[in-house]
C-alpha cells in the first residue's frame, strides 16, 4: 500500500483543468497584460514595461482606494468579530428564543448583494428614506444626512451595511467554536470568584484565539474581494470616497478600457491576497508546532 498511485492524477485531472484554465492562467496572464498599454479590444498590444505601475503609484486615486480598503477592512473585521462574539456568548444557553434570534441574524449572510444594495439605497435615501424620516419624526433633523452621498460619511455607511450582512457569519463561527470549549473551565473560573465580565474577557475570549485568527483572515480576504455591494451603492463615489481596489480596477478595465493599467491594479490585489495567504499558512503552522 505504500506504493505511489499514479492513477490519482486521473482523479484530480478535472479539477486541475478548471484550476489551470480559469484561475492560474488568468492569474499569470494578468501580470503579463500589466506590462502593456492595451484597451482589451485591439489586436495590437503596446509593450511599455513597468510604466503602468509607475503611473499607478503616482495616482492619488489608487492610494485613496488603498486607504479606503484598510479603513474598511479594519472596521468591518473588528466590529463583526466583537459583535459576533458578544451575540454568540450572550446566547450560549440553549433557549428556543435564542435559536430563533440566531436564525434571523444569519439571514443577511445568504442574501443576494443586489437585493441588499437596493434595500439600503431605499433605507438611506436623503428624502423619504426610512432612517432620515425617523430621525426627523423624533425631532433629530440635524442628524439626517446624505448617508451615501456625503464623502465624509459614505464609507462608514458601507461599513455598517457590510457589518449587517456579515455579523451572522462571525456569530455562527463563534457559536460553533464555543460549543467545543470545556464547560469545566467556565465553572471553575466562576467558582474562583471571577465576575461575569472577567469570565468573558479574560477566560473565554483568549481561549478562542484560533477563531479570532481565522475570522481576521477571512475578513481581510472578503474586504479585498468586495465589489458588487459598493459598485451598486456608490460606484466608488462620491469623489472616490468609497473607492476600493476592486471598483477602481473595474473602472479602468470596463469603463475607460485601460486594461493594461487595470491589470497592474489587479496585480497588486493578487499580491495582497498572496501575502495574506502566506501569512496565514506561516502563523497557523507556527501555532500547530
Amino acid at each position: 500500500m505504500r506504493t505511489r498511485q499514479y492513477s490519482a492524477y486521473l482523479y484530480i485531472a478535472p479539477i486541475m483543468a478548471f484550476f489551470l484554465v480559469f484561475l492560474l492562467y488568468p492569474l499569470l496572464y494578468t501580470f503579463r497584460i500589466s506590462l502593456f498599454e492595451w484597451n482589451g479590444i485591439d489586436k495590437t498590444m503596446n509593450y511599455i514595461g513597468l510604466a503602468n505601475y509607475r503611473v499607478m503609484f503616482n495616482d492619488p486615486v489608487f492610494w485613496q482606494s488603498m486607504r479606503n480598503f484598510v479603513t474598511f477592512a479594519v472596521l468591518v473585521v473588528g466590529i463583526q468579530m466583537i459583535l459576533g462574539f458578544l451575540l454568540a456568548y450572550s446566547m450560549r444557553r440553549p433557549l428556543k428564543i435564542f435559536t430563533a434570534y440566531k436564525t434571523i441574524i444569519f439571514v443577511p449572510v445568504i442574501l443576494t448583494p443586489i437585493v441588499v444594495s437596493y434595500v439600503f439605497t431605499n433605507l438611506l435615501a436623503y428624502n423619504g428614506g426610512l432612517l432620515n424620516e425617523s430621525l426627523r419624526t423624533i425631532g433629530l433633523d440635524f442628524l439626517a444626512a446624505k448617508w451615501l452621498g456625503d464623502p465624509r460619511i459614505a464609507l462608514f455607511s458601507i461599513v455598517a451595511i457590510t457589518v449587517w450582512a456579515g455579523t451572522g457569519f462571525s456569530m455562527s463561527v463563534y457559536v460553533s467554536s464555543m460549543t467545543s470549549l470545556p464547560n469545566e473551565v467556565l465553572e471553575a473560573s466562576r467558582i474562583d470568584g471571577a465576575s461575569r465580565r472577567q469570565t468573558m474577557v479574560k477566560v473565554v475570549w483568549p481561549m478562542l484565539r484560533d477563531t479570532h485568527f481565522s475570522l481576521t483572515i477571512i475578513g481581510a480576504i472578503s474586504a479585498l474581494k468586495i465589489f458588487d455591494i459598493i459598485y451598486l451603492l456608490t460606484r466608488g463615489g462620491p469623489v472616490h470616497a468609497t473607492e476600493m481596489p476592486s471598483t477602481y480596477m473595474f473602472n479602468s478595465a470596463f469603463v475607460t478600457y485601460e486594461q493594461g493599467y487595470a491589470s497592474a491594479v489587479a496585480g497588486v490585489m493578487i499580491l495582497f491576497a498572496m501575502t495574506i495567504t502566506i501569512f496565514q499558512l506561516r502563523l497557523s503552522r507556527g501555532s500547530a508546532n
Binding site: 480559469f22 476592486s246 496585480g267
Partner: peptide, 24 residues
C-alpha cells in the same frame, strides 16, 4: 503542493482575473 496551489484559488478576488477571463 498541488493541494496548496488549489487552496490559493480561495484567496483570489474574481475581479482581479476578470480581464483574462473575458479574453478566454
Amino acid at each position: 503542493a498541488l493541494f496548496l496551489m488549489i487552496l490559493l484559488a480561495l484567496m483570489i478576488p474574481g475581479i482581479a482575473i476578470a480581464v483574462p477571463v473575458v479574453q478566454i
